[in-house]
Design a protein around this nucleic acid. Structure first.
Lengths: 192, 192
DNA sequence: GGCGTATCTTACTTGCAGGTAAGTTAATTG
DNA sequence: CAATTAACTTACCTGCAAGTAAGATACGCC
């Protein structure tokens, strides 16, 4: 019997797919173990409770996102960063998968304090990054919007993740449509 | 033993609370029956399967919303209708409950075709209504925005329901903040 | 006053969820 | 090469989920 070379990583990977497909309550250890050809207890070995798995999951998602943000901040202009964020979300929306934060917020009440904290600080980090992008973009004249950067950032993030959620209902790429509308408002000249 | 006078209505009412608190997978018949002081099987009498309950639930939500829309359309100006929508959502956000459509979209994969259809047509009806409000509002000069009414309507609905979702994480009334930003953009003069 | 129907309750079934304990196998290391 | 440890498996547990069947109760109606 050839064991998995990197079981832990494969478990997280599969769990991430399941989380964005069905939400945190929507998958079981069985869904993971059957897919990987291992036993349930093997997952419990790596992640004693589902909370442990959930925590690793959100940390994995956060790390990936924060790495990308860090990289983008160094190499791209504000407008390019905003567009990159849109493109990233459009890609995910094309597969009709949920935003991980959104998937977890549905079961917020039953999440452990650890998980809540991890989700909250991840979400806050993205918000802070986007607010900074907007502020810089306004300074350079690349990006136009009303009000405070933090308020606009909140609106954009809410709209994008809301669109990802509703895309399942609509069946189309709602994030692409929403992003296009934002581009009209923030990059183009006034039409009305 | 005094039976419930209107069990069916009370079951739906309780189920609606639970849906917006925990999502469709997040509550069981037990949660309802214990709260009402009846047996599980009594719920099964009124709603043989959970799908039947879910269908009744979304129809109830939809009817209520459509009634309000119908009323608003007759008596209020476009700007008042848009503001009314914001206020309605702000109220719900204050209790940190989920948008019913959003709560169901998380478990979209496991919903019956009936339920999917009901959710989709409800969501579409709200979208159409808001697009019409925006179009009329632009004609009367009360409301300003870029692009097509339907595109702006999609963005607003996505932002508001996304904000309701994320309010659980943030802990504040994100819908109020998002609505305020929309008002700056759509009702006020340009500041930038 | 008896009869049928609506509205339940009691008492189950099946299935799967998360989780545990103890044993097995294989690689690592002194 | 023996002992330890990591990474599992087999075999279980408890609990709760949805759902069902059959019996009890009450209510309107001829």
């Amino acid at each position: 019997m050839p064991r998995l070379s990197n079981a832990r990583e494969q478990i997280i990977e599969r769990a991430r797919s399941l989380l964005t497909e069905r939400g945190f309550d929507g998958f079981s250890y069985r869904d993971i173990s059957e897919h990987l050809g291992i036993r349930n207890a093997a997952i419990h070995y790596h992640f004693p409770s589902k909370t442990d798995l959930g925590l690793a999951l959100i940390q994995d998602v956060a790390q990936e996102m924060l790495d990308q943000i860090e990289e983008a901040r160094k190499t791209l202009t504000p407008a390019q960063q905003l567009n990159g964020y849109f493109e990233y979300e459009i890609q995910h929306c094309a597969h009709f998968d949920l935003c991980p934060v959104g998937a977890l917020s549905t079961s917020w009440e039953v999440l452990s304090d650890d998980m809540r904290g991890a989700v909250a600080s991840f979400w806050q980090a993205v918000l802070d990054w986007l607010a900074e992008v907007l502020e810089k973009g306004r300074e350079t004249g690349e990006i136009r919007f009303y009000g405070e950067p933090i308020d606009k950032a909140r609106l954009i993030i809410a709209a994008v993740s809301g669109a990802r959620q509703q895309a399942r209902i609509d069946g189309g790429n709602l994030v692409a449509q929403v992003a296009e509308q934002f581009r009209r408002e923030m990059f183009a000249e006034a039409e009305n």
